[in-house]
């Protein structure tokens, strides 16, 4: 039924991953305990949960921004560090994190400057990516001249520049208004279908996670843990109208009811 979930190639393997902080008062805080799961190639996974459940911690561990205190992470056989150095990931943050002093197209070209790609190649690919996110005509604008939604689309275009296998998105749409967000959901799914990336999407919005994902991983706090993995078997491609169907509503309640201790 879904090509993406039938593809059994494991891209990211999490084995008993745990993270313990030392709080200021000397107590240990368990941000994450015993997370074990496989993420397959081309899958769209959401990490869903309230604040303090460890969803962002988990994403940052995969991104090699944090080292887990226990357990193991493998990204197609590599450690997160090796995967980062091979530039298998791209990150999209909550704020677009564009550089004020660069025009839109120069912002998008940035990652290829880091990898010393030729100027013409940089420009060519940037034009393609801006086209993909529908911002071609804004390439010479500065970020400050764009709306929040447009800035975030530039961020996505920039993330795709290194042709990563995995897109790590940390609450990318949470600062946007509902109308812009719903439009970007549809855009993101289109981009995902065209590029076939594996996407890990952190959010605290239940309906967002259901609309976008193949699988919703529900995390619960105190201690942060994976409390449920729910398959979203809604047909693709998905349109905005799917939110009004009884199947969608049923999945939303199923996800909501799987939370523990909130």
């Amino acid at each position: 039924m879904l090509e993406t979930t039938e593809n059994r190639n494991v891209e990211i393997m999490l084995d008993n991953v745990g993270m313990t902080y030392d709080a200021a008062d000397g107590k240990k805080v368990q941000a994450l305990t015993n997370v074990t799961m496989d993420i397959h190639k081309g899958e769209f996974i959401s990490l869903l949960g309230p604040s303090g459940c460890g969803k962002t911690t988990l994403l940052r561990i995969i991104a090699d921004l944090l080292q887990p205190t226990s357990g193991k992470v493998l990204v197609s056989g590599d450690s997160p560090r090796e995967a980062r150095l091979k530039r298998k990931y791209a990150m999209v943050f909550q704020s677009a994190t564009l550089y004020d002093w660069r025009t839109v197209i120069k912002n998008v070209e940035l990652p290829l400057e880091i990898t010393h790609e030729s100027k013409s190649e940089r420009r060519q690919r940037a034009i393609k990516m801006l086209d993909l996110v529908g911002l071609s005509e804004f390439s010479d604008h500065y970020p400050r001249q764009l709306s929040g939604g447009m800035q975030q689309r530039v961020g996505i275009a920039r993330a795709l520049m290194l042709q990563p296998e995995i897109l790590l998105m940390d609450e990318p749409f949470s600062a946007l208004d509902e109308f812009t967000r719903e439009k970007l959901h549809v855009d993101l799914l289109k981009i995902w279908r065209k590029t076939n990336k594996t996407i890990i999407f952190v959010t605290h919005n239940i309906s967002e996670s259901v609309f976008l994902s193949d699988k919703v991983c529900v995390l619960s706090p105190h201690p942060g843990r994976l409390s449920a993995v729910i398959d979203i078997d809604l047909p693709r491609p998905r349109h905005m109208e799917i939110r009004d169907t009884p199947e969608f509503t049923a999945l939303v309640s199923k996800v909501r009811n799987s939370f523990e201790g909130v």
Binding site: A63, D64, R84, A90, M91, F93, S95, L110, I114, T115
Partner: peptide, 17 residues
Amino acid sequence: KRESHELMYSYSANKFQ
């Protein structure tokens, strides 16, 4: 901002870059 640092880190940029 921290995110700006993390962006460069995710590109494995060197200190000079």
